[in-house]
């Protein structure tokens, strides 16, 4: 469709003068093709690369259990995860039950009368205020978080390099000078994968270095079912 048009001036031209040509190339098919290609790329590709979160599980040999019992009772916090599903099997909401230290349960026969189990949820920050489980973990790991934040500030002000910051943060996270919690995450069989990841994620957010996935004990299950009876969902 390229058109070579003769310039339409007055017909009188000097002899020997070169003819002026205006060249128009019609780009419409080119645009059509490009649009098709763009559509193809938009539909067949993904812009977001998935991220990964690394986890280390304890070995199946029961060594870690003893290790954990050695941990100070005041430092231990147990999270029990549960999820509610809607009719289509989609996640309706994740609940986190938690207790600190050892489970304290009062039984009446086999029925649980009272326990130190409490419930909260995974919820994002409201401005700069932590909410839900994040607040609980944040408060228990305050010392570490404050010092990591200080280092981060130094890094932002370009006083230290990123490597130095990461190094320092790692040191702070694993230092015994602070009151650090030991978190045991126990998902109920019906807990969603999302809730497990959220719990692991809270460990990252709150710079908690000691955590593990644990198996539910009978006491835990009894406490959760008792909690559900006493606090029915509206």
């Amino acid at each position: 469709m390229a058109q070579v048009e003769q310039s339409s001036g007055d017909g009188k031209k000097k002899k020997g003068a070169q003819k002026k040509m205006a060249i128009h190339v019609d780009f419409t098919p080119m645009v059509d093709m490009n649009m098709l290609l763009i559509t193809f790329f938009m539909l067949c590709t993904t812009m977001i690369k998935s991220q990964t979160l690394s986890i280390a599980l304890p070995t199946n040999e029961k060594l870690e259990q003893n290790e954990l019992q050695k941990a100070k009772e005041s430092e231990a916090i147990t999270l029990i995860l549960d999820t509610e599903y809607d009719d289509n099997g989609g996640v309706k909401g994740n609940t986190v039950y938690y207790y600190t230290g050892k489970p304290v349960v009062e039984y009446n026969g086999t029925d649980v009368v009272s326990s130190n189990l409490e419930a909260t949820e995974f919820i994002g920050n409201d401005g700069h205020t932590q909410q839900g489980i994040r607040k609980i973990l944040h408060d228990r790991n305050r010392g570490v978080l404050i010092d990591v934040e200080k280092k981060r500030q130094e890094w932002r002000e370009k006083k230290i390099t990123e490597e130095q910051f990461q190094e320092a943060a790692k040191k702070i996270r694993n230092s015994d000078d602070y009151e650090r919690p030991v978190v045991i995450i126990k998902p109920l069989p019906g807990a969603s994968w999302e809730s497990v990841i959220s719990a692991l994620d809270e460990m990252q957010i709150n710079q908690i270095s000691r955590y593990q996935l644990g198996n539910l004990s009978e006491t835990d299950e009894a406490m959760v079912s008792d909690y559900k009876i006493k606090h029915p969902k509206k």
Partner: peptide, 26 residues
Amino acid sequence: GTKFETIHQVLDNLQTIKMNKFSVMT
């Protein structure tokens, strides 16, 4: 939305063969 008991068998088997360090896609 996958239930933990479903994924647990994978995690459990990874633990059994001592591949307890791995990553999850998020």
